[in-house]
């Protein structure tokens, strides 16, 4: 795929930060005192627009290069994307399972779509920036399932991720009981 790049320049990050901050401020303001700027749209639609703006800013941050976008940054980015993808796919599949077993459940609305986007975005941002700036014990080598199981005590972060996914799945399964009642 010659010529295909998906990353923005480092300087795009500041626009992403600005965009997300404005979005977050608008979301907080809209929550505290619902207001309308464009008469054509309701306050709830304004809130959704503010949320979209905040997420768009975070999206730009994710796809902007670091100041020193070296091999280590790329290695951490790859693993963070894998973790975020794993988290998001587990969430989507769990909700799909709950939804398919429940005739009454309304599956698609903007709230649930923001939740899907948020799960991926926040998991990635948390993992990547912890890994690149704070985690002294980042595991650069990926191990196989058996190696992970045999070294279960040393793989605390991995276990935490699996645990978080497990909790989400259990919550959704318990919701299934509520929805189908």
């Amino acid at each position: 795929m010659k010529g295909l790049t998906v990353m923005y320049e480092y300087k795009a990050k500041k626009w992403g930060i600005l965009c997300s901050l404005l979005g977050i401020i608008a979301v907080v303001a809209e929550r505290l005192h619902p207001f309308v700027v464009f008469e054509k749209f309701t306050a709830a639609q304004h809130l959704a627009m503010a949320q979209w703006f905040a997420f768009f800013g975070l999206f730009i941050i994710i796809f902007s290069k670091e100041k020193y976008d070296d091999d280590r940054a790329k290695a951490i980015r790859l693993k963070s994307i894998l973790i975020a993808f794993m988290m998001e796919t587990s969430l989507v599949l769990s909700i799909a399972m709950v939804g398919s077993l429940s005739a009454d459940m309304k599956m698609i609305d903007s709230g649930i779509l923001f939740m899907f986007a948020g799960a991926g975005i926040f998991t990635y941002l948390l993992t990547f920036y912890t890994g690149i700036y704070f985690d002294e014990h980042w595991e650069y080598e990926d191990k196989t399932l058996w190696q992970n199981l045999s070294g279960i005590g040393r793989n605390k972060w991995g276990m935490l991720i699996y645990l978080a996914i497990g909790v989400i799945v259990l919550i959704l399964i318990s919701l299934l009981g509520i929805v189908t009642d």
Binding site: D70, D71, R72, I132
Partner: peptide, 21 residues
């Protein structure tokens, strides 16, 4: 042209650099 954290990780033996670095 790399970050300080990268040098720290290489120096402590936790990260194996690419051939270019």
């Amino acid at each position: 042209g790399v970050s300080k954290q990268t040098i720290h990780s290489i120096e402590s033996g936790r990260y194996v650099p690419s051939s270019v670095i």
